[in-house]
């Protein structure tokens, strides 16, 4: 059985951030949290997103509203990039 989660306190201590920031991300519905053994945790599939939010917040001082907007726009950017790739491939056929 693989461990597919990390406890919030472990994540925060290894990333040197306050636990409250993670809970705020959750309150803003930017990330999903889980619970294992009565302790709140972050599941593996959610980790890249959480780490990205932490970097943007720490590196660029982006607040939670900004992170929400960025996440939405990034989703669109990636979707558009994929679409462009697909169209390019079709053109080259």
């Amino acid at each position: 059985m693989e461990i597919e989660f990390t406890y919030i306190k472990d994540f925060c201590s290894s990333h040197d951030i306050e636990e409250s920031f993670i809970f705020e991300l959750h309150e803003y519905e930017l990330i999903d949290l889980g619970s294992v053994n009565n302790q709140q945790c972050i599941f593996i599939e959610e980790l890249p997103k959480v780490e990205k939010m932490v970097r943007l917040h720490r590196d660029l001082n982006i607040n939670l509203e900004g992170l929400g907007a960025i996440y939405h726009l990034l989703d669109r950017t990636i979707a558009l990039q994929n679409e462009v790739q697909l169209l390019k491939k079709r053109l080259n056929r």
Binding site: L60, N61, L74, T77, Q81
Partner: peptide, 15 residues
Amino acid sequence: YRKLARKFHPDLNPN
């Protein structure tokens, strides 16, 4: 720096 970092931060410029 802030201006350029926001523009070129890798997390904001996927791929």
